[in-house]
């Protein structure tokens, strides 16, 4: 009969736990899970209002085959490939520069971090002007340096590259701080003994710093890819997806379909496609990095 108080204790513990969880579960359930279910529902039904008959995967096939989706998917892929490696590499380089005895270290660290705390939607207005053809300061400088700057942000061939530049500007300081944290966890003795063995700076980086930063690189890369896939604010402000949809990303297309063209069925289906893509990407990256990470 000793189980009685035990069972009652267990029941009250469960009750306490769910009381603690209740507000969060209510908010998440009502405003995240429920909309997801609604979106899934409308993604498998006919778009015509009132009819709503079951159409299975028809909407998915239609979206996947649509010219707009293929264009946005291609643009997003180009954007991710342009922006991610550069951001991660620059962040690592910056962290290595900042990880020294340095006068004004706090200032430099804060300076490169500032773009991450200010509104991208607002700073993109400045970028739009700096990168405009003719009167833009940055495009002008690029021309002067002999770098083909094209028609600035209005160039259909270069628009994505300029958006990627803004992406790097926005995120590099944030990831650099994460790399700095990673660098701080590497025991100093490793470098001392490597130094005694006559390893040069490159060898120390290649055989100590880089492998031991594996966890950080994995974390930063996953974050960087997910952030790049979700690009919206500066696209909205700087190009509006143009010219001729040359910079329309997936999330921008989602916004346009849902809130400008009012094609809710298309938007809901596209939403689930983006969701599954991000899920698959994160999973693939996790698998890739978990096999390569070095413990110590």
């Amino acid at each position: 009969m000793t189980s009685r108080p035990g069972r009652r204790g267990r029941a009250s513990r469960t009750l306490t736990a769910y009381a603690f969880l209740a507000p969060s579960l209510a908010v998440i359930g009502l405003f995240t899970v429920w909309p997801l279910i609604l979106a899934a529902g409308s993604s498998v039904r006919a778009a015509r209002p009132g009819s709503g008959e079951w159409v299975g995967a028809d909407n998915y096939v239609a979206v996947l085959n649509s010219e707009e989706f293929r264009n946005a998917l291609g643009n997003t892929a180009v954007y991710v490939v342009l922006a991610t490696p550069v951001t991660v590499a620059c962040a690592l380089g910056l962290a290595l520069l900042l990880n020294r005895k340095l006068a004004g270290r706090t200032f430099f660290r804060a300076a490169v971090f500032v773009p991450a705390v200010v509104s991208l939607g607002v700073t993109a207005i400045s970028w739009r002007f700096l990168l405009s053809p003719e009167i833009g300061l940055v495009t002008h400088w690029l021309h002067r340096l002999g770098i083909p700057a094209g028609n600035g942000i209005r160039d259909p061939d270069l628009g994505l590259a300029y958006l990627a530049v803004v992406h790097v500007w926005r995120n590099v300081g944030f990831y650099a701080v994460m790399y700095l944290a990673g660098l701080n966890t590497i025991p100093r003795t490793y470098y001392e003994s490597a130094h005694l063995d006559g390893a040069n700076a490159w060898q120390r980086f290649r055989h100590i710093t880089w492998p031991l930063l594996g966890n950080t690189t994995a974390f930063v890369s996953i974050l960087a890819v997910v952030t790049a896939v979700q690009a919206f604010d500066h696209v909205f402000v700087m190009t509006g997806g143009g010219p001729y949809s040359s910079t329309e990303t997936l999330v921008y297309l989602l916004y346009r379909k849902g809130f400008e063209d009012l094609e809710f069925g298309y938007a809901a289906t596209l939403g689930w496609i983006v969701l599954l893509m991000v899920f698959a990407l994160s999973l693939a990256q996790n698998l890739y990095f978990s096999r390569r990470v070095v413990g110590y």
């Binding site: 405003f31 979106a39 997910v226 999330v251 989602l254 849902g258 809901a268």
Partner: peptide
């Protein structure tokens, strides 16, 4: 892992 934009339309 869910991009917040996905729920925007039904929300």
């Amino acid at each position: 892992m869910i991009p917040p934009q996905v729920t925007l339309v039904p929300l």
